[in-house]
Design a protein around this nucleic acid. Structure first.
Length: 214
DNA sequence: ATCCCGAGGG
DNA sequence: CCCTCTGGAT
């Protein structure tokens, strides 16, 4: 098997064929809505998030609205996405910072986004890539798992995975590459019982045929 | 039982 | 590195 660096161009070509117009499946209209949706998506399916956001965004429209909302009421809106106390608190505190420090707008740089409580690197890069067209590698559970299976890294630490992928993937492709790995993780390369038989990336994958047992 | 587009804290 | 926070889906 070739080195990771040699396989990356082939991998990218296959992913482009497989998932030509990849994008987030979260529903949103504004950067603020995307920020909130991304915060709700932790340990929760996008589909579930999209079930709660219509009512949520109808009730709260501005960062000020979220910041001054009744905590209990906000919790009820986001309850079914799990971690609802943390999520409601983080959304509220993040929006408080938006109002106090960023004029009520979602900032457009990674460093500023990371100042918002509840927004980690994964979510910040999501907002950058999807709302502001700024390339970012988003290392979630899928991107981490697939990167390891595909032999792009052996690291567990999401930050190390992120930097390894940044070195491996051309910057303009960072956002698309992330979405493509996520889609492939959801549809084929599952955490448990990956469908290696029907995986079109199998010829690039060192893991195929190796201990896929339990 | 185990996983889902995580983040923060120890 | 580990743990906790949480409900829904499979």
């Amino acid at each position: 098997m070739n080195s990771a660096k040699d396989r990356v161009p082939l991998l990218m070509a296959d992913l482009d064929r497989l998932y030509p117009q990849s994008q987030t499946e979260l529903d949103y209209r504004t950067p603020l809505q995307l920020m909130v949706a991304v915060m709700l998506s932790a340990q929760c399916t996008d589909k579930r998030v999209n079930l709660v956001t219509p009512a949520l965004f109808a009730r709260y429209r501005t960062a000020e609205d979220f910041a001054t909302a009744d905590r209990g009421e906000l919790e009820e809106f986001v309850k079914t996405t799990g971690f609802f106390r943390n999520k409601a608190k983080n959304i509220q505190n993040a929006c408080r910072v938006l109002v106090d420090k960023f004029g009520g707008e979602v900032p457009k740089t990674l460093d500023e986004l990371l100042e918002l409580p509840g927004l980690g690197r994964k979510s910040a890069n999501c907002v950058l890539g999807d709302a502001f067209d700024t390339p970012g590698i988003t290392v979630d559970t899928h991107v981490g798992r697939l990167s390891r299976r595909l032999g792009l890294t052996r690291k567990i630490d999401p930050v190390k995975v992120e930097f390894k992928l940044m070195a491996l993937i051309p910057q303009p492709s960072w956002t698309d590459f992330s979405h493509q790995l996520i889609l492939h993780g959801r549809r084929v390369c599952h955490a448990r019982g990956p469908k290696c038989e029907e995986c079109t990336l199998a010829h690039l994958c060192p893991k195929v045929g190796v201990a896929k047992k339990s």
